[in-house]
Simulated assay, not measured.
Amino acid sequence: MTETQLSEEEVIHCVGCGAVIQISDKEKIGYTPSGALKKGLEKGEVYCQRCFRLRNYNEIQDVSLTDDDFLKLLNKIGTKDALIVNVIDIFDFNGSLIAGLQRFVGKNPILLVGNKVDLLPKSMKKSKMTQWLRERAHEAGLRPIDVMLTSAVKQHEIEQLKQTIEKYRDGKDVYVVGVTNVGKSSIINAIIQNSAGIKDLITTSQFPGTTLDQIEIPLDDGKAIIDTPGIIHRNQMAHVLGEKDLKLISPKKEIKPKVYQLKSKQTLFFGGIARFDFIEGEEHAFTCFMSNDLNIHRTKLENADDLYLRQVGDLLQPPRLDEKEGFPPLVRHEFSIKEKSDIVFSGLGWVTVQKPGAIVAGWAPEGIDVVIRKSIV
């Protein structure tokens, strides 16, 4: 056995979930550090890192699957009689959408849950956001039985989610699905805490696993909430930024909108990861809804390209200097504004354009969506 791989003759399965143990890729199923593997072999009990953290800290971690593995899992779910809870990121709808989910889950109803509602400004009407999510879901071929907003960090929101799940599951199992980085496991952990209480956390023996590394949380009627591994979407901000930069652009508390009075031919840079051009139109206020920690830099449109080339990774961060080498090029998306609208940068936030008649452009890393929607503020 080397430090990077296990030989075929040394296939070891996790005692907790049955996954094949591997020590080469911590993002994949069955990962355990080589030191932990050695200790486990000495004890005769080897656990993957996910099961270890679940057993010792009641912490559920996302585990990613390949597209093929995930489709196999979805096909299996389609043969069950269950409620499907599809968790998405309010700030990254396009990046957290699972293409074709409706046809894979068969006749099972889908409850669409937008996470991170606690980060939205208080001025924002939740009813508008819920309606927008419903419309986008319909455009993508999803027909959810209901759409709701929740927050993994707010207990009253989790309580409401539990009640909604109970309303629609009708005595069935519940499968929670979602792509990586949407907060799915945080919601599962919050449900555990809400159900069991801080002083009496559910013990790990109550969480059986399967070879696909599902985690089952038992319900009072003998059914279960089943946490499934997250699928990787390469068009998420999480795959173009390092961990520190991802934390910087991910809001941690309620967003405080920033207002900029712009004339035509002016540009706003959001660090070095996105850009907004006001190309043509009447001078007016533009409102930015993004992480409070993200630096926004204003310049003239005519200087924008040169500024980016010279300052990305320095004045314009993120990305950081040591990470800009492999950072994707920014791609331009132009929009003609016909009503008060939001220009949405997937996984980052949005800019509200107040007045019709404006022509604007949003730039984002290659593969990351920039879309327009009717303003939700």
Results as ranks from 00 to 15, higher is better:
249 I>G: 03
215 I>N: 14
242 G>F: 07
264 S>Y: 09
233 H>A: 15
212 L>F: 14
208 P>Q: 01
207 F>E: 03
219 L>W: 01
268 L>G: 01
269 F>V: 02
227 D>H: 04
231 I>L: 14
242 G>H: 13
233 H>K: 15
269 F>Q: 01
208 P>L: 00
259 V>M: 12
242 G>E: 09
219 L>Q: 04
256 K>T: 15
279 I>H: 08
213 D>S: 15
216 E>V: 00
232 I>C: 11
212 L>C: 03
238 A>D: 12
270 F>Q: 04
265 K>F: 14
218 P>W: 00
213 D>W: 02
242 G>W: 10
207 F>D: 02
234 R>K: 14
238 A>K: 15
209 G>P: 01
234 R>D: 14
238 A>V: 12
285 A>D: 14
241 L>G: 06
219 L>P: 02
229 P>M: 04
206 Q>C: 05
226 I>E: 02
264 S>T: 14
242 G>N: 14
282 E>C: 09
214 Q>C: 03
232 I>R: 13
269 F>G: 01
259 V>Y: 10
220 D>I: 11
275 R>N: 10
228 T>L: 02
225 I>E: 01
268 L>V: 05
211 T>K: 13
262 L>E: 03
260 Y>T: 08
232 I>A: 12
239 H>A: 07
238 A>Y: 13
220 D>R: 13
240 V>L: 06
209 G>I: 00
206 Q>N: 11
271 G>C: 01
245 D>I: 13
268 L>T: 06
223 K>N: 05
256 K>S: 14
254 E>F: 10
251 P>S: 06
277 D>P: 10
209 G>V: 00
224 A>W: 07
263 K>T: 11
230 G>D: 09
241 L>P: 04
268 L>C: 06
236 Q>W: 11
262 L>M: 02
269 F>D: 03
228 T>Y: 00
235 N>Q: 10
218 P>V: 06
278 F>H: 02
245 D>T: 10
248 L>S: 15
241 L>R: 05
239 H>C: 08
268 L>H: 07
241 L>M: 06
258 K>V: 15
231 I>T: 10
276 F>Y: 03
213 D>L: 02
218 P>R: 00
220 D>Q: 11
214 Q>D: 07
280 E>K: 11
237 M>K: 07
260 Y>C: 08
275 R>Q: 08
262 L>T: 11
224 A>T: 08
285 A>S: 14
207 F>G: 02
239 H>L: 13
220 D>S: 11
245 D>G: 08
216 E>A: 14
216 E>P: 05
243 E>G: 12
255 I>R: 07
271 G>S: 04
228 T>H: 03
264 S>Q: 15
235 N>M: 11
233 H>W: 10
276 F>R: 00
266 Q>F: 06
240 V>F: 11
251 P>Y: 04
257 P>H: 08
252 K>G: 15
257 P>M: 11
